[in-house]
Design a protein around this nucleic acid. Sequence first.
DNA 1: CACTACATGTAAACTGTTACATGATTCA
DNA 2: TGAATCATGTAACAGTTTACATGTAGTG
Lengths: 184, 184
Amino acid sequence: MSLTMALLGLLAAEPASGYQLAREFERDLGRYAWHAGHSGIYPELIRMTERGLVEVTGEGARNSRTYAVTALGRAELQAWLLAPPTGGKVRNEHVLRVFLLDALEPADGLRMLRRIAEDATCRIEELRRIRERHDRDVPEGRDALGQLAAEFGLRQFEALHSWTLWAAERLMRRQEQGGGPVSE
Amino acid sequence: MSLTMALLGLLAAEPASGYQLAREFERDLGRYAWHAGHSGIYPELIRMTERGLVEVTGEGARNSRTYAVTALGRAELQAWLLAPPTGGKVRNEHVLRVFLLDALEPADGLRMLRRIAEDATCRIEELRRIRERHDRDVPEGRDALGQLAAEFGLRQFEALHSWTLWAAERLMRRQEQGGGPVSE
DNA sequence: CACTACATGTAAACTGTTACATGATTCA
DNA sequence: TGAATCATGTAACAGTTTACATGTAGTG
């Protein structure tokens, strides 16, 4: 269901081939929202074509097919977006790691936090550069989705960074006070 | 794999029954990091017992079994936490919806953003209350994980809220300027 | 011509969800 | 004793991933 909508959303911004869509997932969408590989995308596009949600609008070199959303597809996407938020399932391995921090020795936990903080800093800088580019030439089509993603990611990584600082401080407070922290 | 680690992490904080673990997933972990239902948890606990990662340390009323991590389980968890961050898969239906915003008519998009912002505000207030409680009595065991989650969630919802404000402004800027936005 | 990137697919294995199914204990 | 909650499980189904498989076009 969600994969269907993700594809519909990408194609609503701009028609594309399965290959291009797969690359798109590796960029913004796959990073923050929904991950998918080409082997899931191609069969899904065929199913969607059968259901009339998308259609092949052209064939290019190397047997590539360009897909575009149909009116029906657009209607289904909009209906889904406006529908009451069903208890969406969350799966995020990064966040999971971060939550299990207390299972490590404090020294290891600190190392892990520092690594996460560094990584977050890199991404924040990268996203700030992307933002500047967006400020100059106002994005259209799929780049507009990229802009939404960049602004979202920027704030999220800032939040993550702020959290690592808090968590590191908490760890050090604990280390000073109570002696044996984790191990049995 | 991730479910295994999530369970190991919860049990590392405090031994528990499958039922208690399932309830735990409905709270912090399932909200932000990893969702799982009881029908996935019970079979996984049995497999983990067979692999020697956990063990049954007691049986209580109503045929309940209490599981605890073994030394091996703790070692595997720590190894996984310290391992290089494999390109973790992300699946978040909420974020997906938010990314596909541009597929809606501007008026609908604004309504959606407002709904998300309101929801975020509620959760932020809730998490602030939880934080105050944590400030009074320093959490131990599984409550410590709850504290990590609360501080993380707080920052994340603040980021989401900030993003909705930005996105709403962007939508209104677009509405003023270029006329026809989405529909073909 | 070799290598890389483009481009699409399938089958088996794995993971997770939904719906079904059962029984124990507490409380009103 | 009826209802709610605690407590555990299974089987069929749906969705994803991994590995395999194939062929095209451009570039050095």
